[in-house]
């Protein structure tokens, strides 16, 4: 009987959806219980938990992923929904548009180029390069970019987590060394480099830092989404 149970349950997407919801809720609860550590985001706890459950059940990732499509299809409308906070931040753009317009293209392009250059020098394959290129872009947009480049979305997700978690101590270190106290600059750097994870941290600093972090995150996402796939095609890395 028990041997038949798992195939019966996995016949509907509801097991995958239910496991995802449960892992997410437990992960968030554990995260709060641990005092919201910045080096261990709730999503990492939840993902570890979910991976362990899938391994215990002996369920292949592909089967799970297929069922979870019922959730991931919502990423499309959720990405569109980001247009609303973007609109609400337009006053900030208006206030400082000149330095931001000059900084954003350079900083967002370098966020991708530094990592790509280092990985390329160390002999990473084109697949790997395509998977880590969008490492500083917020996940819903980064997934779209990585699919365009032909990279591996799972590796992208890992890169996003690592980048987001590292950005937080790096920004405090760099701000101390460069003697920067301006919360707007610190917030913008957190969002530009550390996407949603950095933005959450910026909101802990102050609402102003948070607003500039969301702005940095949105603008980096748009800039990278518009130009990276195009640049990729021109340079011809994807063809390798």
């Amino acid at each position: 009987m028990l041997t038949n149970l798992l195939p019966t349950l996995t016949a509907t997407p509801l097991l995958a959806v239910g496991l995802t919801l449960a892992a997410y809720l437990v992960g968030s609860a554990v995260f709060i219980r641990l005092g919201k550590p910045s080096w261990l985001p709730a999503i990492l706890i939840a993902a570890l938990l979910l991976a362990a459950i899938l391994a215990l059940l002996g369920q292949p990732y592909a089967t799970y992923q297929q069922g979870a499509t019922w959730l991931t299809v919502l990423l499309g409308p959720a990405t569109v929904a980001l247009g609303m906070p973007l609109y609400q931040q337009l006053p900030h753009i208006h206030e400082l548009w000149r330095p931001l317009a000059a900084c954003l293209p350079i900083a967002a392009a370098l966020a991708a180029c530094y990592a790509l250059g280092i990985a390329w020098l160390l002999g990473a394959s084109p697949d790997i390069l395509a998977s880590i290129a969008a490492k500083s872009v917020t996940a819903p947009i980064a997934i779209g970019i990585t699919e365009q480049l032909g990279g591996n979305v799972a590796l992208l997700m890992g890169s996003l987590l690592v980048t987001g978690v590292l950005t937080i101590p790096f920004v405090s270190l760099a701000a101390r060394l460069l003697r920067i106290n301006d919360e707007r600059i610190i917030g913008f750097a957190l969002g530009l480099n550390g996407h949603a994870i950095g933005t959450v941290r910026a909101f802990d600093i102050s609402p102003t830092a948070g607003a500039f972090a969301s702005l940095g995150m949105s603008l980096t996402g748009i800039f990278t989404a518009l130009l990276l796939p195009l640049a990729w095609r021109l340079v011809g890395i994807g063809a390798g």
């Binding site: 400082l96 000149r98 330095p99 931001l100 000059a102 900084c103 350079i106 900083a107 370098l110 966020a111 530094y114 990592a115 790509l116 250059g117 280092i118 990985a119 160390l122 002999g123 990473a124 790997i128 880590i132 490492k135 500083s136 590796l155 890169s159 690592v162 980048t163 590292l166 950005t167 790096f170 920004v171 760099a174 701000a175 460069l178 920067i180 301006d182 707007r184 600059i185 610190i186 913008f188 750097a189 530009l192 480099n193």
Partner: peptide, 25 residues
């Protein structure tokens, strides 16, 4: 390659962003 790219790449890009924006502002 992956870990070095993420670690060093993020460190360099954080420094660049902060330095650049401070100068521009």
């Amino acid at each position: 390659a992956i870990v070095a790219a993420l670690l060093l790449g993020t460190l360099l890009s954080v420094f660049t962003t902060l330095w650049l924006l401070t100068r521009l502002m």
